[in-house]
């Protein structure tokens, strides 16, 4: 069952001007539920643009994006915000936690936006912080956590609302080897145990090595799509 279906996506910046840039040039991609996919390619290849369009943060110039059967391509900005809230988890390169909230509050934040009950939120937050190994640090603010710990909080936050998939834009780019390894272990376990679909953009070989599917993009086109056992 496909969670993400991308059909003929094109993204052109500054269309019609002298500095027109074709970031994506006819991308077709289908991601099935439970996949652990890495989108790789050199800088400027279009990885982030593709993830932004799949995540509803950017709009394609042409083509269609279906998430779990729902077309998001024609949605208004407000509809997209609501869609992202309930369907997509995000992990960013620079963690992007809310610095004034504790780890626990950060993880529960999206559920709060979803108006989930206190009990449900409390249980889910504790469960996730336990899974990412930060139960003891739950009352610490991001500034009191290491980069690896912050990114684990970000993963827990992305998963808190039980999204249809998690988009991670270069999640290990700012992490050392140990933190990268720990984070990948956690995400792989969550993928396996909870069946969470993960899509990464990365050029980190350590991530590529752990992915079960590697989609390579160059000059806005998919140049290879390899599934590993």
């Amino acid at each position: 069952m496909s969670v993400i279906k991308v059909k003929g996506i094109q993204k052109i910046y500054n269309e019609g001007s002298a500095i027109e840039v074709r970031a994506l040039n006819g991308i077709d991609l289908v991601v099935e539920k439970g996949e652990f996919t890495a989108v790789v390619g050199p800088s400027g290849s279009g990885k982030t643009t593709l993830l932004n369009i799949i995540g509803g943060l950017d709009v394609a110039t042409q083509g269609e994006v279906l998430i779990d059967g729902t077309t998001i391509s024609g949605m208004s900005e407000n509809e997209l915000i609501g869609f992202r809230l309930n369907n997509i988890g995000f992990v960013f390169q620079a963690y992007n936690l809310i610095p004034v909230l504790t780890a626990k509050e950060n993880v529960g934040f999206i559920m709060l936006l979803q108006k989930r009950s206190n009990d449900e939120r409390e249980n889910r937050v504790n469960e996730l912080l336990d899974e990412v190994g930060l139960k003891e640090q739950k009352n610490k603010r991001p500034g009191e956590l290491s980069g690896g710990q912050q990114q684990r909080v970000a993963v827990a936050r992305a998963l808190a609302s039980k999204p249809k998939f998690v988009l991670a834009d270069e999640p290990t780019a700012n992490l050392d080897s140990k933190s990268t390894s720990d984070l990948l272990d956690i995400m792989a376990r969550l993928n396996k145990e909870e069946g969470t679909t993960f899509i990464f953009s990365t050029h980190d070989q350590r991530v590529i090595d752990r992915a079960r599917r590697v989609v390579t993009i160059d000059d806005g086109r998919i140049t290879s799509d390899v599934h590993h056992a």
């Binding site: 407000n78 915000i81 609501g82 992202r84 809230l85 309930n86 995000f90 809310i98 999206i110």
Partner: peptide, 16 residues
């Protein structure tokens, strides 16, 4: 900017 962008990305509505 980054934090506000993140809030909107993860689903915080504009009125909020």
């Amino acid at each position: 900017r980054r934090e506000l962008g993140m809030l909107m990305a993860v689903g915080m509505t504009k009125p909020k």
